[in-house]
Design a protein around this nucleic acid. Structure first.
Lengths: 110, 110
DNA sequence: ATTATCCATCGTAATATTGCGATGAAAAGA
DNA sequence: TCTTTTCATCGCAATATTACGATGGATAAT
């Protein structure tokens, strides 16, 4: 064991969990915040910004890119990263839809 | 290595990442959705609902409880779980605040 | 008192994540 | 051409997560 039993859950549940996992690390939060602030940056900027090794930073970028929430393009020797607006909005809508559902007219349950 | 270097990041970044981690598993998403739908339920209901072993279900409940987003109370032989409305709203506001920041007047960056 | 039910916890195995040094590919500049 | 810069990837080690059977404590029912 040790592997998530994805087959037990709906597509929506798996997708929302995957989205959460993509941002479930402070370095990846920091990368996204930096990108929002600066609009775009190269990998080296993030190495300085985060204080993590270059290999580690690159790995986090890879995960964010795999999740679709950022995109990278080669810019000569550099690689320039930025937010993918469509996917970003999709994340926003998914999370907001998930948390909006609840009706808390009363705080009691048991 | 293997442990997240939390000291490199701000409190906000660590907290948001921890929130995301709490819901970064389809079983925990499913538990929260079930609780939203039913308002409250006992652990045994979730074992049937999820199709995971009792020990595994209990472990996911423990994580959600540790994150504060649900609460449990002993109800005779059963343990009754429900959403913690304050924390739920805090999650909602944190995520919505995070995703709202971005300004996508144009989708280009590099 | 005995039994049955519910569930938290322990122990363990399998797998995933995090982090870094080392290496190498690609492009720019000398 | 040779060097430098930038970054992705590989390989490894440390740690975390996921899942389950087994056990035991607590309460209810007989």
């Amino acid at each position: 064991m040790g592997a998530t039993k994805s087959a037990l859950f709906t597509r929506e549940q798996n997708e929302l969990a995957a989205m959460a996992k993509a941002i479930a690390h402070p370095a990846r939060i920091a990368i996204l915040q930096y990108l929002v602030r600066k609009n775009a940056c190269v990998c080296g900027d993030l190495v300085d910004e985060l204080g993590l090794a270059q290999a580690t930073t690159s790995q986090h970028l890879k995960e964010l890119k795999l999740a679709g929430i950022i995109q990278g393009s080669i810019e000569g020797v550099n690689v320039c990263y930025c937010i993918n607006p469509e996917v970003w909005n999709r994340y926003r809508d998914f999370f907001s839809g998930f948390f909006k559902k609840v009706d808390l007219k009363d705080g009691k349950c048991c």
